[in-house]
Design a protein around this nucleic acid. Structure first.
Lengths: 119, 119
DNA sequence: GGTTGACCTGGAGTCCACTCCAGGTGGGAG
DNA sequence: CTCCCACCTGGAGTGGACTCCAGGTCAACC
C-alpha cells in the first residue's frame, strides 16, 4: 500500500495544499495518517475519495452537501440507498445545468450572428 | 415606448431589486430613468440588456467581464468586432463547461451503477 | 388626515470557499 | 554543522456577488 506526500497529492488531484488541509479540517476528508514528524501521508483511499470530491465539486455541489455524502460513506453500507438518492438528485441538477448552458449558448450564438451581420 | 416599475422588472427578469440597484451602482446597468419622485422606470432597452446580463451571468461570466462588455456596447458600433471576440471567447468557455459537466456526469453515473450493484 | 406600501439612499453585513500568514519543526544535502 | 525545504498549526484575510438595514419620501386609499 503506497502512500503519498502532500506535494504528490497536490500534483495528482489539482487541489492546493491549503485546500487539502481545509477539507480535512472541516471533515470532508477523514483525518489523514501522519508520519513520525506529524506530516501527512495520504493513502490510496484518500486519493480515490479526493477524486470523488473533485467530481462533485466541479459539478457544483456545495460543501455542505458533500459533507452529508461523506457522513453517509463513513456510516457504512446501510446508507447505500441514501447515497444513491443523493447522487441521483445531484445528477438531475447536473442535467439541468447542462440543458441550461446549452440553451444560453444558443442565445450567445444568435448574438454573435447578429453582430457578424452588422459588421 | 412603455416603461417598467422595479416590481415589474423583478417579475420579468428574476433579478432581485437589490441586485438591480447593485448592477446600476457598479455601472453594469446604465443610469436608469426616474419619475418625478425619483423612482426607477426601466425602459424596453434596459429589459433587453438585463436579458443579456442574465445569459452571461448564468453561463458563468464574472461581473468584471460583463462590465467590459457593457463598456464596449456603450462605446458604439466601432467596437462590434471586439464584442464578437469577447463573446466567442466566452462561448468557448461555455463549451468547455458543458463538456466538463458531461464528463463528470459519466463518473456520477458509474458511481450510481456501482452502488446499485452492491445493494 | 392617517396609514399603507412601493420605492429611495448609503453603507454595513453575509455567505462561500478558499488562501495567506507568522512562527515553528524535522530531515536530508553539501 | 548548517542550511534549506517541505511540512506543520491556528487563525486572520480575501474575493465575488450579492443582501440587508435604518431611516426617509411620496402617492393613494380609506
Amino acid at each position: 500500500m503506497s502512500v503519498y506526500t502532500p506535494a504528490e497529492v497536490v500534483e495528482e488531484t489539482g487541489f492546493s495544499i491549503d485546500t487539502l488541509r481545509y477539507y480535512e479540517k472541516i471533515g470532508l476528508l477523514a483525518p489523514v495518517d501522519r508520519n513520525s514528524a506529524g506530516q501527512r501521508r495520504f493513502s490510496e483511499d484518500d486519493l480515490g475519495w479526493l477524486g470523488t470530491i473533485r467530481c462533485l465539486r466541479d459539478t457544483g455541489m456545495p460543501i455542505a452537501e458533500m459533507l452529508r455524502f461523506a457522513e453517509l460513506v463513513r456510516a457504512g453500507d446501510h446508507t447505500i440507498a441514501d447515497r444513491i438518492a443523493l447522487l441521483e438528485e445531484h445528477d438531475r441538477r447536473v442535467r439541468d445545468q447542462i440543458d441550461n448552458l446549452a440553451e444560453r449558448q444558443r442565445y450567445i450564438h444568435n448574438k454573435i450572428s447578429y453582430y457578424r451581420s452588422v459588421l
